[in-house]
C-alpha cells in the first residue's frame, strides 16, 4: 500500500518541498518589507556549504552538531542578506542588480564553491545529517505514515513556522507595521515606523531562512556537498512567493506542488513509464514561468497582494 505511486509522490513532495518553503517564507518576509531579494539562490548555497562544514567540524553529540550546523548555516544566510540590505536599503542601489550580484557572487561558481574547496567540504560525506524520523513509530502506517510521520525535524519545524508566520503577519502590530512599510514607506515613516529598521530586519530574517533551505540540501537531501547543489531552487522560491500571494499558508502548498514536480521524474522512471526525462526535469521551471505569467498581470498584482512599494528604494525627502 505504501508503495502506491501517490503515496510515494506525496511523501517526496513534502520532503523536497520543505527547502523551497523555507526559502520562499524568507522571501515573503523580505518582500513584505518592500525589498526584492534575487540573491536567494546564492544565499542558499552559502548556507548549505557552511552548514555542511559545521556538521563535519563542530564537536559534541550528533544532535548538538546538527543543531549548530543549522544555526551556522542560517547565520551565513543572514550575513549574506545583511550585505543585500546594506546595498538596497542604505545605499539604495537597484534591487534587481544587487540581488543578481549576490547570487552570482555567492553562487555555484562563486564564494560557496570557493569555501567548499578551501574547507575541503566535499571530500567526505556529511555524516551527521538531518535524518527522516519515525514519529510515534507510525512511519509504516498505511498511506499517512510515509507522508506525515516519516519526515525530518525540519519539515515539522516548517509546519510550526507557517502558523507563527501567519499570526505574525496578519495578527500582530509588528506584522501590520511591516505590511505598511511594504505598501507605503512614506506613510509608515510619517506614522513613526522606522522603515530602515524594518527593511533590514526582515531582509536578514529572509536570508536566514534561505540559509536554512540551503542547509536542508546539504544535510538532508544529499549528505555530501556538491557545488551548485540547489540547482535553481532559489529561483523557484522567488516564484513561489508570488504563487503564494505573499501568504505563508498558500506558499506551503505551492512548495509541495513544486516538490512533487521535482520528484515525479524519478518516480515515473523507476516504474518505466516512457516519458522523456528532460521534459519531466524541466517541469518545475516550466511551471515557474506559467505561474509568473499568470500572476504578473496588473489585475493580479493589485488583487493578490503584492506589496505596492516592492523593489522601490525608500528615500526620505530631503529637508
Amino acid at each position: 500500500m505504501n508503495s502506491n505511486i501517490f503515496v510515494i509522490i506525496a511523501s517526496s513532495a513534502i520532503f523536497y518541498g520543505t527547502p523551497l518553503f523555507f526559502a520562499a517564507l524568507g522571501g515573503i518576509f523580505t518582500e513584505r518589507s518592500g525589498v526584492l531579494n534575487l540573491g536567494v539562490e546564492g544565499t542558499m548555497l552559502l548556507g548549505g556549504v557552511t552548514g555542511a562544514w559545521a556538521s563535519q567540524h563542530v564537536p559534541g553529540s550528533a544532535w548538538f552538531t546538527v543543531l549548530a550546523a543549522i544555526i551556522i548555516g542560517m547565520a551565513a544566510g543572514a550575513l549574506t542578506s545583511t550585505l543585500l540590505a546594506f546595498l538596497c536599503v542604505t545605499l539604495r542601489t537597484n534591487q534587481t542588480v544587487a540581488g543578481l550580484a549576490i547570487t552570482i557572487f555567492a553562487g555555484g561558481v562563486g564564494l560557496s564553491s570557493y569555501f567548499a574547496n578551501v574547507w575541503k567540504v566535499a571530500e567526505a560525506p556529511v555524516d551527521r545529517q538531518v535524518r527522516r524520523l519515525d514519529v510515534l513509530g507510525w512511519a509504516d502506517v498505511p498511506v499517512l505514515g510515509p507522508i506525515l510521520f516519516n519526515q525530518t525535524i525540519l519539515t515539522y519545524l516548517s509546519w510550526v513556522m507557517v502558523v507563527l508566520a501567519s499570526i505574525y503577519l496578519f495578527r500582530t502590530r509588528f506584522g501590520l507595521q511591516l505590511r505598511a512599510v511594504g505598501e507605503s514607506p512614506q506613510t509608515a515613516d510619517a506614522m513613526g515606523i522606522n522603515v530602515v529598521k524594518y527593511r533590514y530586519l526582515h531582509t536578514i530574517l529572509g536570508g536566514a531562512l534561505a540559509g536554512l533551505g540551503g542547509v536542508y540540501y546539504s544535510l538532508a537531501i544529499v549528505p555530501t556537498w556538491v557545488d551548485g547543489m540547489t540547482k535553481g531552487a532559489g529561483w523557484i522560491a522567488i516564484a513561489l512567493v508570488i504563487f503564494g500571494f505573499w501568504r505563508p499558508s498558500i506558499t506551503l502548498i505551492g512548495a509541495y506542488l513544486f516538490g512533487a514536480l521535482q520528484s515525479l521524474s524519478s518516480t515515473l522512471k523507476a516504474r518505466n513509464v516512457q516519458i522523456s526525462g528532460d521534459v519531466l526535469d524541466a517541469l518545475p521551471f516550466f511551471m515557474t514561468i506559467v505561474v509568473l505569467v499568470l500572476v504578473s498581470t496588473r489585475f493580479a498584482h493589485r488583487r493578490l497582494g503584492a506589496p505596492a512599494a516592492l523593489g522601490v528604494p525608500y528615500e526620505r525627502e530631503e529637508r
Binding site: I8, S12, Y217, V226, M229, T267, K269, A270, R271, G277
Partner: peptide, 26 residues
C-alpha cells in the same frame, strides 16, 4: 531495473532516482 538519470553528475537527482527504485522494492 535501470533508470536513466540523463546526467553524469547530478547528486540530488541521483539520490531521488535511487530512492524511487528502493520505493519500487529494489
Amino acid at each position: 531495473n535501470v533508470v536513466w538519470v540523463n546526467s553524469w553528475f547530478d547528486p540530488p537527482n541521483e539520490r531521488k532516482a535511487a530512492e524511487a527504485l528502493i520505493a519500487e522494492g529494489i
